[in-house]
């Protein structure tokens, strides 16, 4: 009896949070899914149920496939680079040196700048005529004008901006590794590389996985950074899924088809999460 009461009590305490979550997450999600099964064009005032038609169209849509490819390329490359640079910076910041506190603060600056501001900043750095980058290199490269360079330029900007966040989380992770372990391993005969491979890396793995999850989800949904920098161009070469969805939804007001793209983004992100969760569980030391 008391047990039941306890359970009901727990539910009552959880109810406000669940209601709010349902209101701001679950309802929009279901609504988007419902929209994706409709043909709804605001301009022509059309709204009718079409079933899976939008999804069938997606399969043959080359622009969608292009956006998916761009998104995957952007995600894999930027997350990989952010992790490598972030780890290197975290390892450096974990050592003792003068001005360490100041260094930590300076490192965080790119992350503290609003995305739109830093995108504008990089747009000027990349500017072929007046940009600092070309000025320093002495060439005249149109960074954001060539399809190949533009996407990589967007990756570079994202790496610059988000590496501090990765470094911050990894620094926190490094600090939880007891110093005695390094002493013991050094006495056991381990050199710097063995220390890193046998002590640091395995013990940092839970944090690395969390960082990977955070960053992969964020990068996969990237919108503002790329949209402000290139607007998706040139020739859709930097158009990510979020940008494509935004253009379809809010520039051409095709609510049905745009919703179908959004649902695809949601399904991809959900799939990553499902893949990560067992890894995180297994690693809980």
């Amino acid at each position: 009896m008391t047990h039941r009461k306890g359970k009901e009590g727990a539910f009552l305490f959880l109810a406000p949070a669940l209601l709010i979550l349902a209101g701001i997450t679950l309802y929009p999600l279901l609504h988007v899914f419902r929209l994706s099964l409709h043909r709804r064009l605001l301009i022509f005032d059309i709204s009718r149920f079409v079933g899976p038609e939008n999804y069938l169209y997606l399969l043959g849509d080359t622009r969608f496939r292009n956006a998916l490819g761009n998104t995957i390329y952007f995600t894999v490359l930027s997350v990989l680079l952010e992790l490598l640079f972030g780890l290197a910076i975290a390892l450096l910041l974990n050592r003792h040196f003068r001005g360490k506190g100041l260094m930590r603060t300076i490192i965080l600056i790119p992350w503290a700048i609003p995305t739109v501001v830093s995108a504008r900043m990089w747009e000027w750095l990349y500017n072929p005529d007046f940009g600092l980058l070309n000025h320093l290199l002495g060439f005249r490269i149109n960074w954001l004008g060539s399809p190949f360079l533009a996407l990589n330029a967007a990756v570079a900007m994202d790496v610059w901006k988000t590496t501090p966040f990765v470094a911050l989380l990894l620094t926190a992770g490094l600090q939880t590794i007891p110093r005695d372990l390094y002493g013991a391993a050094r006495i056991d005969g381990a050199g710097p590389w063995t220390l890193f491979r046998k002590i640091t890396l395995p013990l940092l793995m839970p944090v690395i996985l969390v960082v990977l999850l955070f960053r992969t989800l964020d990068a996969f949904r990237v919108f503002d950074a790329v949209y402000v920098l290139t607007g998706g161009g040139p020739a859709n070469s930097t158009e990510t899924l979020s940008i494509y969805a935004y253009k379809i939804l809010f520039q051409t007001l095709q609510f049905g088809y745009g919703s179908a793209i959004s649902v695809m983004v949601f399904l991809c992100v959900g799939l990553f999460t499902l893949l990560f969760i067992p890894l995180l569980r297994r690693r809980k030391v």
Partner: peptide
């Protein structure tokens, strides 16, 4: 001489066992 070349072994107060 680095610790690994001194041919010593040490037992720590925290034991310092490798948790993984």
């Amino acid at each position: 001489l680095p610790p690994g070349e001194r041919d010593i072994a040490m037992v720590f107060q925290s034991y310092a066992l490798y948790p993984h």
